[in-house]
Design a protein around this nucleic acid. Structure first.
Lengths: 349, 349
DNA sequence: ATGAAAGCGCTAACAG
DNA sequence: CTGTTAGCGCTTTCAT
């Protein structure tokens, strides 16, 4: 009678492997951890046997000596608008999948106040629930960076901090996306192009603005400061920004938008004015909309390979934790332009 | 010169506490873990000293003997529409916050295929990354339950399984919500009320349908089977379902909807037909829309206290893991009706 | 009611 | 190159 069976199969321990190979635990341990003083032959035998016996070191048993538990930390900020985007699921999935590939797991915590955030970092580290952190959405002034940096805790930013004081990050070249968008629109004949930027507390905002401006200049177009809106991160924000833009005496014939959700708000504002998207008004969005995904409704945008980004982030953090090179990495990835029905030549009135 | 400082402050160990009290580690251990053979006085001294020295047992050090690491597992299913709802962030936040209150953390993994799901459960358990699982969205035929049950792993369902073979769950009484919605509409004078249900693979669907039917009967209204739509879980689904309902010869004057996202699709379909919400068509939604939250646009709905639900789920799972009573719990919570601008008396044509 | 001692699975000196 | 030995922080018999 099998009552209350909680574990399915007995786990092989390092001792088992050692015994099977007539070696000592320490040899097995060093073989598995890639120490240089182990004969290639032995290492191979050990690895093979580990494979056969399905042996994997128990992370919390190692942790007791090493302090590392093979887990990545992610602290969500509820106040952040990103937390409420559909994108979050993809992000979590991407990171956890990448992490598990390398034997790591994802520990998620959440904070609403700033103090909570720091407390969470502290306790997660202290209790060995995270060996390092992934910080989504780099901010211009980022208290997380400050804290983690002088606590000596490994972390990776998603986004480029303006003043990168020696921290690692991965980012997507949003500025190029903005520039290409302008170029695309300019080629279609647009001359009055508006820009709806995202939250200026985030590092990406300045970059994307610059990208937009560079694009305008390259296209030989005049930039009207009144055509540039800031801080639109939600659908509602986008709606409000678009209202301002569209209710001007001379309205833009096209709007470039830094955040996908905001772009949807622009759609709504346009529709409310009876403007046909892709005709009376061209709209180009950007941000988390996945490459190949169908924006609903169709939005001309830069698709971002979120999975790849997550993979880079996780991999990088793991390198940092392990102390294996590259110990400091900054990398960017491009976004692929996806032309859909939301742009077209300007109506010649 | 402090180079590479990784840990901020030295952690107190059980030995430290024992020494400070002139006791043995074993006494301290048993005192902390509530063993009965410890004098009340000693227990108090130990607890107080632990407090003072800020001692907390290292979960992975305990795990090496006990096998439990004080972490709750959550495996997201990407195929699930829920994964893409804004609601996810709240859920994660709620669960992780509740867990951390009790010294637990949240480990998140993800799966896209069904096999992945099971594999994830296995490895997370095997590697001691989760002591038990929270399963969102109970399904009618739930392979997770089957697996976890005969693996003897503790878990808690969010939702009531139709045939609960001895598993614990927590749920919100969606059927009451549906019933009240009908009642509300009937009182306003509606007689032709449609129903847009959610995914029939989920356990809630049948419950909500029954709630709707009971409500109709209680109001003395005739139920037209053609007025009942199934499987609308997204905005798009809701749109499609509403199209069918609204393009009939006799269209409903009100629609009750089981899923908030689908309700938004109903809005769109209505607007496309020039129908004024709350006037030409009343709409009532339900699901994850948080109590007090502003539905955008205003939707008459049942607000759900997600935080409370998360707390219940986490607490319950922790009880199960620890084996402390109640070892089997089924509980439901109500939803509070929030009347907004999306309902009104039917237009008398 | 408490202590002594052994050991969990693993790593890390230090020998040889 | 490999074995020996000693822990890491905690739990858990078994004595007393």
């Amino acid at each position: 009678m099998t009552e209350g069976r909680v574990v399915t199969d007995k786990r092989a321990t390092i001792a088992d492997v050692a015994r099977a190979l007539d070696l000592t635990k320490s040899t097995v341990s060093r073989a598995m951890n890639g120490f240089p003083d182990i004969a290639q032959a032995t290492r191979l035998r050990v690895q093979r046997m580990a494979e056969v016996m399905n042996y994997q070191p128990l992370s919390h048993a190692q942790a007791i000596k090493t302090g590392i538990t093979r887990s990545l930390g992610l602290v969500l900020q509820l106040s952040d608008h990103d937390a409420h985007r559909p994108f979050l699921a993809e992000f979590l999935a991407g990171v956890s999948a990448s992490a598990s590939t390398k034997g790591y797991t994802l520990t998620v915590a959440s904070a609403d106040t700033h103090a909570d955030l720091i407390t969470n970092f502290r306790t997660l580290m202290r209790d060995g629930k995270a060996d390092g952190f992934i910080l989504p959405r780099a901010m211009v002034e980022d208290p997380r960076v400050t804290y983690l940096q002088d606590a000596g805790v490994p972390f990776v930013l998603y986004g480029r901090p303006p003043k990168s004081k020696g921290c690692s990050w991965f980012d997507i070249r949003g500025e190029d996306a903005m520039r290409h968008a302008v170029q695309h629109l300019a080629q279609l004949g647009h001359r009055r192009i508006g820009f709806v930027n995202g939250g200026s507390v985030y590092a990406y905002a300045e970059l994307r603005l610059q990208g937009f401006l560079v694009g305008m200049q390259a296209a030989g177009l005049q930039t009207d400061p009144a055509m540039i809106m800031q801080n639109a991160v939600t659908e509602t924000d986008g709606f409000a920004a678009a209202e301002q833009l569209l209710d001007r005496a001379v309205r833009p014939s096209a709007i470039v938008c830094a955040i996908d959700q905001a772009a949807l708000g622009i759609y709504r504002a346009a529709q409310a004015r009876g403007l046909q998207i892709g005709q009376d008004l061209s709209v180009t969005g950007y941000d988390g909309i996945q490459a190949g995904a169908q924006a609903q409704p169709p939005l001309t945008t830069f698709g971002v390979d979120n999975n790849a980004a997550c993979l880079r982030l996780a991999t990088l953090l793991i390198c940092l934790i392990r102390g294996t090179p590259p110990t400091l990495l900054r990398d960017t990835a491009t976004a692929t332009f996806l032309v859909r029905g939301s742009t077209g030549p300007p109506v010649t009135s």
